[in-house]
Every structure is written in C-alpha cells, then in structure tokens.
C-alpha cells in the first residue's frame, strides 16, 4: 500500500480502503459477502421448495373439504404403485425420454464432429451459432410449428402427396411426440458433444493412425471414450427436459398420451390434489438426482 495513493483519497475513500484491506486480510468475510445472497436464494427458496415437495408427497387431501391435511401417509405412493394407468404413464414418459436421448445422440454426434474437426474456424463459428440459435427461439412456437406440419392438411401430408405417397397421419401419436421432442432438445446435445470433441488433442488421432488403427478403430477406441462425458452432459438435458415436459404431450400427443407432467399439472390445477401431484413428481426427481450424481462423478459437468 503506497503512501501517495492514500493521500490522494478523500475520507470516504479511506473508509473504503480500510474495508478493502480488512476483507483482504479476512478472505472468509469477502467470500461470505459474495456467497450469502446467491446461496441464500437457492437454500431458502429453491432447496426449501424441493423439500416442501418431498414432504407434501406424504400428505393428503381431505376428500370433503379439499384442504391439505399435514398427516403422514403413504396413500399417494400406494395409488401410484397399484394403478396400471399411472404405471403406463410413467413408463411412457421414461421410455420416450430415453428414445429421444438416443435419437439426439445419433443426430448430434456427426454434426459436432464435423464442427470440431473438419469445418474451418469461420464455418465453425457460424455453425455453432446456428445450431444453438433454436434453443433461444420460442419453445412453444417450435412445438406449435410441428402441430401445423403434422396436421391432416399440413406440410407433411402435402409433401407426401406431391411425391405420390399416401398421407402419414402421425399427428397425435407417440411417434409424433418422439419426433418433436427430438427436434426441440437436439441443440442441447450438440454443444456438449462439440465441446468434448474439441478438447481432444489432434495429436491423439494422429498417434492412433500412426499405430496402425483404421478410421473406425480410432473412432471406437479413442474418440468415443473421450467424448462420453460430453454425451452424458447432453443426455442430462434431453432426458430431463423430456421427463419434465407436459406442453408437447398436450399440443402434439393429444388424448391418451399423457406424461407424468400432465398428471402433475392436472392435479395442481383442476383436481387440486397437490400431495398426489408431488408424489408423482418425486419419481422423475429421484431418477434425475441419481443420474446427475453419476454424471458429476464422470466429469460431465465440465461440458455443460
């Protein structure tokens, strides 16, 4: 701390300087000053809300008054375990989420590879922006676009008719939901895979080739294992976002294609049975928490 700088400062600045020196000597205070507001927000609001959700899953609603009774019961979970309807819904949700994840890996990997290893810097930057742009373009607009495309008199059937094929009529089916979810979440898969491939030093590919590995062998023995954390990072989004969606099932799936999210939404809005909604929501929550902790161990979080 030089003498000259201290003289230049007026008294209020001197106070600031003293405070600054104090925080420098006690970094814990500085860290606390920065950390308390954001972590306070997460602990007091978000984590508290998650705890409320888990606790509420064990409450029940009085059948007559519609009031929530704060008494512990496993009734909600019994209903879920014994009802074939809810089991079908849970399996449909998880099944489509898994199918969407696999589809997006297949669609995204070649693109990410092309961007990271073949495209020049200019083309790479352009492609990167273009591939990510849809994430920020209105989600609901992109779902709605597919509703128009898949409709009876929509673009798809028109195009099929032009080339002399019969109409597809896949609107309002599970296939339509799989297609639309794959479309909506695809950009979330491209970025982390791209980041993972870009991190692999080019010399590794050359070394593999020098040691006599052909293209496919280099791919399975070198590229793929190193890119797995990126694939897992992407799958967190594609899987989780599909699990937690209820808009696309309403707009694209039609009746008889409910997701867990639709049951949750209906129980919060119309039926007003929040404990039951909470109980059903714990299923994807637990699935995702396990998945996230595994992903964290595998280093996938650096790719997000």
């Amino acid at each position: 701390m030089s003498q000259g700088a201290a003289i230049d400062h007026a008294p209020p600045a001197r106070l600031g300087r003293r405070l600054s020196a104090m925080l420098w000597r006690r970094p814990r205070w500085a860290a606390a000053a920065l950390l308390v507001p954001p972590m306070g927000w997460f602990v007091l609001i978000y984590l508290a809300a998650l705890v409320t959700l888990f606790v509420a899953a064990f409450w029940q609603v009085d059948d007559f008054t519609g009031e929530i009774i704060h008494r512990w019961t496993l009734r909600n979970f019994e209903t879920l375990a014994t009802s074939p309807t809810y089991r079908t819904i849970a399996l449909r949700t998880v099944g489509i989420a898994a199918a969407v994840t696999v589809t997006d890996i297949v669609l995204a990997f070649p693109c990410a590879y092309f961007m990271a290893r073949i495209a020049g810097p200019k083309l790479r930057a352009t492609l990167f922006t273009l591939m990510l742009l849809p994430i920020w373009l209105s989600y609901i607009a992109r779902v709605y676009a597919w509703r128009l495309i898949l409709a009876h008199d929509g673009v798809l059937n028109w195009a099929l008719g032009e080339v002399g094929l019969p109409p597809a009529n896949i609107g309002y089916t599970n296939i339509a939901m799989w297609l639309v979810f794959s479309y909506i979440w695809l950009p979330f898969m491209i970025t982390p895979i791209y980041a993972a491939i870009e991190r692999v030093p080019g010399s590794l590919f050359e070394a593999s080739a020098d040691l006599g590995a052909r293209g496919l062998r280099t791919f399975t023995k070198v590229t793929l294992p190193l890119v797995v954390p990126g694939i897992i990072a992407g799958s967190i989004f594609t899987f989780s976002l599909t699990l937690g969606d209820y808009i696309t099932p309403v707009l694209i799936g039609g009746t008889g294609s409910s997701f867990i999210g639709n049951v949750v939404y209906a129980n919060v809005g119309i039926a007003n049975d929040i404990p039951f909604a909470a109980a059903f929501a714990t299923i994807p929550a637990v699935v995702m928490l396990i998945y996230l902790s595994i992903a964290r161990r595998l280093g996938a979080f650096e790719m997000l």
Partner: peptide, 19 residues
C-alpha cells in the same frame, strides 16, 4: 445453480407451487 434447469421443469414448477 444448475439444478433448476437440470431437474425436469415440472418438478421446479410444482416444488415452487407447493412452497
């Protein structure tokens, strides 16, 4: 910090709603 977007949206929604 990443939990609210990594957990399915409906969970964040209903958690806040019940909170």
């Amino acid at each position: 910090v990443v939990l609210p977007i990594a957990l399915p949206g409906v969970i964040t929604g209903i958690a806040l709603n019940s909170f």
